Simulated assay, not measured.
Amino acid sequence: MHASQARSAGLGLALASAFAFGGSGVAAKPLIEAGLDPLHVVWLRVAGAALVMLPVAWRHRNLVRERPVLLAGFGLFAVAGVQAFYFASLSRIPVGVALLIEYLAPALVLGWVRFVQRRPVTRAAAAGVVLAVCGLACVVEVWAGLSFDVIGLLLALGAACCQVGYFVLSDQGAGHGDKTEAEPPHPVGVIAYGLLVGTAVLTVVARPWGMDWSVLGSSADMDGRDVPAWLLLGWIVLLATVLAYVTGVVSVRLLSPQVAGVVACLEAVIATVLAWVLLGEHLSAPQLVGGGVVLVGAFIAQSSAPRPPSGPVASGPGVAAATAAEAPDPAAAGSELSRPQAPS
């Protein structure tokens, strides 16, 4: 796959991931209103996806021996951490505030790249993040219920940090800059074991044995329409989790954490629009303006990445790796610029 093709594919997958993740709340809200606890919905989401991915986990069981730290980190931060911290923050601060803080992750990703990996960050990328965050503030109408609960804010910030782990670990799983690794770990295998680890962690937190299982056999209300609860659960598991994680991780490998992170800001816009269409939650003028600002910020950030040289790009099993131009030049910058081998 050539560099331009890899970049186009990465952007397409990042958008698909944003759409898939953005639809999770629309499907989850009717289940919660039907009587399921939010943490139980999260457990069903992750455990169901882990069950679907079991054959993949068995196929790539060598990863348990070869990359245990990566698998544990992905499951703990990218799967369980984001969900648990976010839903815990909702009990103390408004939804809009929690969502905005969680989506500070792209800015934190830039900080990771600049100060931990010591790689340069373009001004355009930074400007794109600033625009996207400002747009998100309008999309979630953060001023509608601003509350300064310190513990709640810290929990939401924890979700943002775990979201950073999702982008950083997705990128590091590719093995970029590691001259000793012949072949990067398969991204879908990493996701499969991450979901298994996440299920184990969330089982302790959510305690699903106390769940009202009868809700899954009934219907849930979606803006006046009765929808089978099992159909909504299938949406959450297959589209908003399995498809979302697979396309998201692969897009990070084809692009970079900072670019994919800003494109992921579109999730809040997509969630708001879907809630408007499917749940009857109407958009205000500031939300429409904010959605446009997020789009502009995402476009600026994704177009700011350095253009790779023409020619084929090395690829791992089933997915092309990120371009060589996005990786630091050891001769010019020193070996400390390579991505560390080890967490939205």
Rank of each mutant, 00 (worst) to 15 (best):
residue 3 A to W: 04
residue 5 Q to H: 15
residue 11 L to D: 08
residue 15 L to F: 08
residue 15 L to H: 06
residue 17 S to C: 12
residue 23 G to E: 06
residue 25 G to P: 00
residue 25 G to Y: 01
residue 26 V to C: 00
residue 26 V to I: 06
residue 28 A to W: 00
residue 30 P to M: 05
residue 31 L to G: 00
residue 35 G to F: 05
residue 35 G to A: 08
residue 37 D to G: 10
residue 44 L to C: 05
residue 44 L to T: 00
residue 49 A to F: 05
residue 54 L to S: 07
residue 56 V to E: 09
residue 61 R to Q: 10
residue 61 R to C: 10
residue 62 N to M: 13
residue 64 V to H: 09
residue 66 E to Q: 12
residue 67 R to G: 04
residue 68 P to W: 04
residue 72 A to F: 10
residue 77 F to I: 09
residue 78 A to P: 02
residue 81 G to F: 01
residue 82 V to C: 06
residue 88 A to C: 07
residue 89 S to C: 01
residue 90 L to V: 08
residue 91 S to W: 10
residue 93 I to P: 09
residue 96 G to M: 06
residue 102 E to N: 14
residue 103 Y to M: 11
residue 106 P to S: 13
residue 106 P to A: 14
residue 106 P to Y: 11
residue 109 V to D: 01
residue 114 R to N: 06
residue 115 F to D: 05
residue 120 P to A: 14
residue 124 A to C: 13
residue 128 G to P: 02
residue 132 A to N: 07
residue 136 L to Y: 07
residue 140 V to Q: 00
residue 141 E to R: 05
residue 142 V to C: 12
residue 146 L to R: 12
residue 152 G to H: 04
residue 153 L to I: 14
residue 154 L to M: 14
residue 159 A to F: 05
residue 163 Q to P: 11
residue 165 G to N: 02
residue 167 F to P: 03
residue 170 S to D: 10
residue 173 G to Y: 03
residue 174 A to V: 05
residue 176 H to F: 13
residue 178 D to I: 04
residue 192 A to R: 00
residue 193 Y to L: 05
residue 195 L to H: 04
residue 198 G to Y: 04
residue 206 A to E: 01
residue 207 R to Y: 02
residue 210 G to I: 09
residue 212 D to P: 09
residue 215 V to D: 07
residue 215 V to P: 09
residue 216 L to S: 07
residue 220 A to L: 03
residue 223 D to Q: 10
residue 228 P to M: 01
residue 229 A to Q: 02
residue 229 A to H: 01
residue 230 W to C: 12
residue 231 L to R: 06
residue 232 L to S: 00
residue 235 W to M: 08
residue 236 I to Q: 00
residue 244 A to W: 08
residue 245 Y to P: 03
residue 247 T to G: 07
residue 248 G to N: 07
residue 251 S to A: 14
residue 256 S to A: 15
residue 258 Q to W: 12
residue 262 V to E: 03
residue 268 A to C: 14
residue 268 A to V: 15
residue 269 V to D: 01
residue 273 V to F: 02
residue 273 V to C: 04
residue 274 L to G: 05
residue 275 A to I: 02
residue 278 L to M: 11
residue 283 L to A: 07
residue 284 S to M: 07
residue 289 V to I: 11
residue 291 G to S: 03
residue 298 A to L: 06
residue 299 F to R: 13
residue 300 I to Y: 08
residue 301 A to H: 06
residue 306 P to M: 00
residue 307 R to N: 11
residue 307 R to D: 10
residue 314 A to Y: 10
residue 316 G to W: 05
residue 317 P to S: 08
residue 318 G to T: 11
residue 322 A to V: 09
residue 329 D to R: 05
residue 330 P to H: 06
residue 332 A to K: 07
residue 333 A to G: 15
residue 335 S to E: 14
residue 341 Q to S: 10
residue 342 A to P: 15
